[in-house]
Structures are given as structure tokens and as C-alpha cells.
Computed example of a mutant assay.
Amino acid sequence: MKIYQISWFPIIAFMVAGLTFLVLCFTDIKGIPKHLFVFCIGLLFSLVFLVYSFYLFRKRVQGKGFYWDEDGLVIDFKGNKVFWDEIEDIRFLKEEVESQQ
């Protein structure tokens, strides 16, 4: 059984987005009291992105990921599984899109 870990791209993308929001929040330090609501929303977005990136990084370091076995397909990091007999159909989406064009 091979475990497919979370890719580096979403981890880095969320981290860059969080750091960008954080830097943007503090670009106008003198204007923070005037725009306190916008500042708080920016901090909230930056913290959400940063916390999620660290969560994904921690799961990657722990070796958690997506895999499948003879019983079914693991769909999240908690080990929740969709069993093979519950899946009705598996189709390759790119083929459907090309045939519709």
C-alpha cells in the first residue's frame, strides 16, 4: 500500500497567502485605528491560511495521506473510508470534458 502525501503546492500556497495578508495588514500601521475592522478581518484571514498550512505540513511530516486498499479508499487524514461497494462509478473527467466539446 502506497500513501500519497499532501503535495507541497497547497502547503506553500496557503503559507504565502497567509504571510501576504499579514504583511498587508501591517503596511499602514498609523491607519490601523481608522480601519480597525478591515485590520481585524485581514488578521483573521492571515491566521486561517497560516494555521491551515501548518496543519497540512504537520500531517505531511506525520506521514498521513490518502491511500486505498482492498476494503476501500481513505478520503481524509482521520482515516475515514469509502468502501468499494459504495462507489457506483469511477470515470476519468478529462475524457468527459473532451467528448462534450
Score class of each variant (00 low, 15 high):
M1D: 09
M1C: 02
K2E: 14
K2M: 12
I3V: 13
I3L: 06
I6G: 02
W8Q: 11
F9S: 05
I11S: 11
I11Q: 03
I11A: 05
I12R: 01
I12H: 03
A13P: 10
A13N: 00
A13E: 00
M15T: 11
M15E: 10
V16S: 15
G18M: 03
G18S: 06
L19T: 12
F21T: 07
L22W: 05
L22D: 00
V23I: 15
L24R: 10
F26N: 11
T27P: 07
T27F: 13
D28K: 02
D28W: 08
I29L: 15
G31N: 06
I32D: 00
P33V: 01
P33G: 05
K34F: 15
K34Q: 14
K34S: 14
K34M: 13
L36P: 00
L36G: 04
F37L: 14
V38Q: 13
V38W: 11
V38A: 15
V38H: 12
F39H: 02
F39S: 08
F39G: 05
C40F: 12
I41P: 03
I41A: 14
G42I: 08
L43M: 13
L44T: 04
F45W: 05
F45T: 01
S46C: 10
V48T: 11
V48D: 08
F49G: 06
L50D: 03
V51A: 15
V51T: 13
V51N: 02
Y52P: 07
F54L: 14
L56Q: 00
L56N: 04
R58Q: 13
K59Y: 12
K59I: 15
R60S: 02
R60E: 08
R60F: 02
V61M: 03
V61P: 09
Q62S: 12
Q62L: 13
G63A: 05
G65N: 05
F66L: 08
D69E: 02
E70S: 13
D71F: 00
G72P: 08
G72M: 00
L73C: 03
L73G: 01
V74E: 05
I75K: 10
F77R: 07
F77K: 01
F77H: 08
K78E: 15
K78N: 15
G79E: 10
N80S: 12
N80H: 12
F83D: 13
D85K: 09
D85Q: 01
D85F: 06
E86I: 03
E88V: 15
E88G: 14
D89G: 04
R91H: 08
F92I: 09
L93D: 09
E95M: 04
E95G: 01
E95A: 07
V97N: 04
